[in-house]
């Protein structure tokens, strides 16, 4: 349906309200990206795009990224705009719901981590920690559609 999407990462099967996440992000994308002055850098796509990740590593890198956004990114994105904050909350709570499901897969050994996903995620963290925390969080949030497009 236009509502939910089922993602199959090998044996790991995740249902996700992609439409709700996308509509919340679309509503604030311009506002968030306008707060990101550093247009030449990317957190998720530097030096290589997510599309380079092998399919066998897709579940693990997705798990890492949902943890990254929930644990590190959203909390540093509070703005003075109540509407933007509400949309960030919608995305964050949806991400938390998916993160839980990925954790289940991981515990059941359905979301194995290879060398490549570890390397890719290490690069993403290095990109993130290369900026001050607010700038890095805002930039990461502004790149959410890169993650969503790659997942779809």
């Amino acid at each position: 349906t236009a509502g939910n999407k089922i993602f199959h990462f090998g044996p790991c099967r995740i249902s996700m309200s992609m439409t709700e996440i996308r509509s919340s992000f679309t509503a604030i994308k311009a506002n968030i990206q306008a707060r990101d002055p550093i247009r030449t850098l990317s957190i998720l796509s530097h030096p290589h795009s997510l599309h380079k990740v092998k399919s066998s590593d897709r579940c693990c890198i997705t798990h890492h990224l949902f943890n990254f956004y929930v644990d590190k990114v959203f909390k540093h994105c509070k703005t003075e705009d109540s509407y933007v904050n509400r949309k960030i909350s919608s995305i964050a709570n949806s991400f938390l719901s998916v993160k839980r499901k990925l954790e289940q897969c991981h515990k059941q050994n359905k979301c194995m981590c290879g060398q490549e996903s570890a390397e890719k995620f290490k690069q993403i963290l290095a990109n993130y920690e290369g900026l001050n925390v607010i700038a890095a969080a805002i930039k990461s949030l502004g790149e959410l559609d890169i993650l969503l497009n790659w997942m779809e």
């Binding site: 929930v70 644990d71 959203f74 109540s82 904050n85 909350s89 964050a92 709570n93 938390l96």
Partner: peptide
């Protein structure tokens, strides 16, 4: 939401 309780210092969001 659960996110605010567990990751954002139990913050509240006005509607």
């Amino acid at each position: 939401g659960e996110y605010e309780r567990e990751y954002a210092n139990e913050s509240w969001i006005p509607i």
